[in-house]
């Protein structure tokens, strides 16, 4: 369980993180999104105890980060943007150091190290110096250190940077697996990765939380205009006329790329699809298919960020 209450970080007069509050008590993979300078890294550094907040409380598994930092840190694993690895040690020596520092009992240490090396596929490299490893392997050593000791909360900042496509898939699957019995917070700029891996998404802008919901809710059920793609047989003029005259349709057009295909838009509170079906049926224009086009995460992200920008500008003026 991770709980953040009224978290703020102020540098002089600049509010890097502004009164941020959220609570995650379910095991799943959280995507942490925000434009550059939104306060993502500052928030992650404060959650992991690397940076002191100006105000607010951080509780990891019931341990307050400012009152019981050692206990709180035992429950958290973090991979920063640049993997914090000692280049002159081998992955095994490095993980032994991290395991000892995390106070993993000696009897379990060897097994834990071997397990995380298996999971991250670095067993073959365990006796090579880290400075001789490729960027991808270093990244994996960084991930191994984060998950060593099986902490209930894992925070990964850009974990797939520098990996080849095959490794990216492996690491994404690993993150998905970890999400089954851990709280994983994943920060990434690759939105396709977030939508592929994360079941919930958190978006921050100007240090404030602007969205925290499941990916499905954010992408599918938002109270915005819906776009429908419609395939229907019949004369184009007739179909367009029906679309124009059906109540609730705010915009309609035919698609030039596909024959007999049209798009129209409506607001969720005034759904015209049933009426449209009867109207087309009465005009002897059979409906082949009709489905709501889902917005991509990119569109949702940009929309939410734009909204928060507008609110900020409005508030300031």
């Amino acid at each position: 369980m991770i709980e953040v209450k009224n978290l703020s970080k102020i540098y002089g007069t600049f509010h890097a993180v502004d009164n941020l509050s959220f609570k995650i008590d379910q095991n799943c993979v959280f995507g942490f999104l925000g434009p550059n300078g939104a306060g993502k890294s500052t928030t992650m550094n404060m959650i992991t105890g690397c940076l002191a907040p100006t105000n607010g409380e951080i509780t990891i598994n019931g341990f307050d980060m400012s009152l019981k930092p050692e206990e709180a840190k035992k429950n958290i694993g973090y991979l920063p943007e640049i993997p914090p690895v000692y280049e002159d040690l081998t992955p095994y020596e490095y993980l032994s150091f991290v395991g000892n520092a995390k106070k993993i009992p000696k009897s379990e240490l060897k097994k834990s190290i071997n397990d995380v090396m298996e999971k991250t596929n670095i067993t073959v490299m365990k006796n090579r110096l880290i400075k001789n490893l490729s960027k991808g392997y270093r990244q994996r050593v960084g991930i191994a250190q984060a998950i060593l000791g099986n902490p209930p909360v894992i925070i990964l900042d850009e974990p797939t940077v520098g990996l080849d496509p095959e490794q990216i898939i492996e690491i994404r699957n690993l993150i998905k697996d970890l999400g089954k019995d851990h709280i994983v917070i994943l920060s990434s700029h690759i939105l396709s990765e977030i939508s592929a891996v994360c079941s919930s998404i958190m978006i921050i802008s100007h240090g404030k939380l602007v969205a925290l919901d499941t990916a499905e809710n954010l992408i599918g059920n938002e109270e915005t205009e819906k776009t429908v793609e419609l395939e229907v047989k019949g004369q184009r003029e007739t179909v367009l006329e029906i679309l124009k005259n059906t109540e609730g349709i705010t915009f309609s057009s035919c698609l030039e790329q596909k024959e007999n295909t049209y798009i129209f838009k409506f607001m969720p509170q005034n759904d015209p699809r049933e009426q449209l079906f009867y109207n087309l049926s009465n005009a002897q224009c059979p409906v082949i298919s009709m489905f709501i086009k889902k917005s991509s995460l990119e569109e949702i992200f940009l929309e939410i960020i734009q909204e928060s920008e507008n609110t900020k500008t409005g508030g300031e003026s």
Partner: peptide
């Protein structure tokens, strides 16, 4: 320089 100071911050050692 190697950014391993962050690791020392993260680990449960004072």
């Amino acid at each position: 320089k190697q950014k391993t100071d962050k690791l020392l911050c993260l680990l449960p050692i004072d």
